[in-house]
Every structure is written in C-alpha cells, then in structure tokens.
C-alpha cells in the first residue's frame, strides 16, 4: 500500500516539476517567439504566435452602437521574418559587441587566474607585514560594493588611460582578485609543504617550483574559478558602461542602448538581440554544466 502511494506521489511530483519547468522556460520562449514579430505587435499582443496571413477586412453585423454595421480593417500579418535581427544587428553592431565581450572576458579571466595563483602562493608561503597588508586589502575588496569605488575608479581609469578594452582588463583583474586569491590560497594551504621543499632541494628556484610543482595541482580550482569569473565578467554592465567609449561596447551595454533616453524601447530589435545575447550563454552552460555546478558549490562554501 505504501509502495503504491509512493509511486503515485512520484508522478504527482513529476507533474508539478513539469509545470514549474514550463514556467521557468516560458519567458525565454515568449522572447524567442516575439523576436519574429513586427514591432507594433510585440507590445500589443506579446503572448500570441506570429501570424503569417493578414486578417481580411470585414463588415461587422449591425449593433446598437453602429446600426448600419461597421467596417473593420484587417490586421497585417504579424510575422516579420528576420527583419528584427537584421535591423538590430546593424543598429547596435552586435557582432562587434560580441567580439569585445569575448575578448574582455577571456583576457580578464586569464589575467585573474595567472595573477592570483601566483599571489595566493606568495601570501600563503611568505608571512610578513607586507603579505598581511595584502591579505587585509583583499578581504576589504571582497566586501566593499562597487558603488563605493565606482566614481573614483572611473575617473582614475580616465587619468591612467585604462578606459579602453585593453585597460579594462587591468580593472577586472583588480576587482576579481579578492575572491580568486582566497580560493587559491585555501587550496594551497592544503598542499603539503614537503613537496615544495623537495623541489627546492632538487635545485628548482621559486619560479620553477611554482610553475612545475604548484601550478599543475591548482588545475581543478582554476577551472572552478574560471567559470565563476566568466559568469561575472560576461554579464557585467556597470564597469564597461562607465569606462569604455561608446564605440566599443560589450553586449549588456549595447542592449541597454536600445532603450532611448526617454525610456522608449525599440522592442523589435530588442527581442532579436535578447535572443542573440542568451544564445551563447545557454550554449556555454549546456557545454560546461558539470563544471558550472561544481563551481557554484565551491563558491558558496568559500563565499
């Protein structure tokens, strides 16, 4: 008896989960559907499928308000083909933004990993006032919200000529190093010191010890970190918005630019660009799902 109710319970649960999953996917599907509709019909009937044939004009039956009947003009077909895509691509120069986003993300993540792995090794193995200060500064940098440094940082970037897609990498490395160093340091602490001492005795200098003994062991932590940092840099809006010139925009900044200065949104192009912006993220997720979930868990434990 218990067996039966258990099985029935599982089916009910399954049905509930299907409904929730549908609710989760619904917004994405609506956006996809609307990306093929004419601008006017996106806001007036967002939940209707695009229609391919115009509705015919017709006369309405006589009613109290219109005793002689009324002429009702038909509507155009709401299907707009790929015009939203072609217009949007031109308007916000999507591919260019995609290129900048890709470059900034890859370069920043590589920069963060290289710098912080060395830094973490240094501050765990060398203990003096200098590393204590760095350790403290990193802790502070993890807590302080972006708004605190937003203004001064963007002015600083101006003065130091870091306000371009190359300089911004330095800024990202600076912002990202707090968490990355901590995660690396946490792992390095668990590596037995004897391994490094053995390398030293065999005549390897500190540089060689790091690259040939320590670095290979950091691989799994590095993958986790790479995932977490990629998610952050790719989606970041404020830092590129504040520092990059408007000719070199990342994807979030480019999408935000589809909202006019008075809040009017170009919905046709917006829908198409939202689809294009989500596509690489979803592909990335499906490809590295295992690592992403691992990364989330590791980040939660350390964070």
């Amino acid at each position: 008896m218990a067996q039966v109710s258990n099985r029935a319970g599982k089916w009910i649960l399954f049905a509930v989960l299907i409904i929730v999953a549908a609710a989760v996917l619904f917004p994405i599907l609506v956006v996809f559907m609307n990306s093929f509709k004419g601008q006017l019909y996106i806001t007036s009937q967002p939940f209707k499928f695009p229609t391919f044939k115009p509705t015919p004009d017709h006369m309405e039956e006589p009613s109290e308000a219109f005793p002689y009947g009324r002429f009702v003009p038909g509507e155009d077909a709401t299907f707009a083909g790929i015009t939203n895509y072609t217009r949007g691509l031109v308007q916000i120069k999507f591919f260019q933004s995609f290129g900048w986003s890709l470059w900034i993300t890859i370069a920043s993540v590589c920069g963060i990993l290289i710098c912080t792995s060395m830094l973490a090794w240094f501050i765990t193995r060398v203990k003096n006032w200098f590393t204590t200060i760095i350790y403290f500064a990193l802790t502070v940098s993890m807590i302080v919200p972006f708004q605190m440094v937003m203004f001064t940082m963007s002015r600083f970037a101006n003065i130091l000529h870091l306000d371009n897609p190359w300089g911004i990498i330095v800024l990202y490395v600076g912002f990202g190093c707090g968490m990355a160093t901590f995660m690396f340091a946490g792992f390095i602490k668990s590596i037995p010191l004897a391994l490094e001492e053995a390398a030293m005795i065999d005549g390897a200098g500190p540089v060689r010890t790091f690259f040939q003994v320590v670095l290979p062991m950091l691989k799994s932590t590095a993958i986790t970190l790479a995932i977490l940092q990629t998610m952050w840099v790719w989606n970041d809006y404020l830092l590129p918005y504040l520092t990059l010139p408007s000719t070199q925009r990342t994807i979030p900044v480019a999408i935000q630019s589809l909202r006019g200065s008075y809040g009017a949104v170009n919905w046709g192009a917006m829908m198409a660009m939202l689809v294009l912006a989500m596509l690489p993220v979803i592909i990335f997720f499906l490809a590295c799902q295992k690592y992403i979930i691992k990364g989330v868990l590791a980040g939660a434990v350390k964070g």
Partner: peptide, 24 residues
C-alpha cells in the same frame, strides 16, 4: 538544468525579458 539556467543570463537581459512579460 532547466531551473538553474536563468541564473547565467545577465541582469540587463533579464530585466528586458521580464519587462515584456509583465507588461504583456
């Protein structure tokens, strides 16, 4: 997989998706 997916989509993109849905 499905439940986790929205998390990877950036804040700006999310905002406009939901503006469409909620206004609809």
């Amino acid at each position: 997989t499905i439940f986790f997916m929205p998390n990877l989509i950036g804040g700006i993109v999310l905002g406009y998706i939901w503006q469409l849905i909620i206004n609809g």
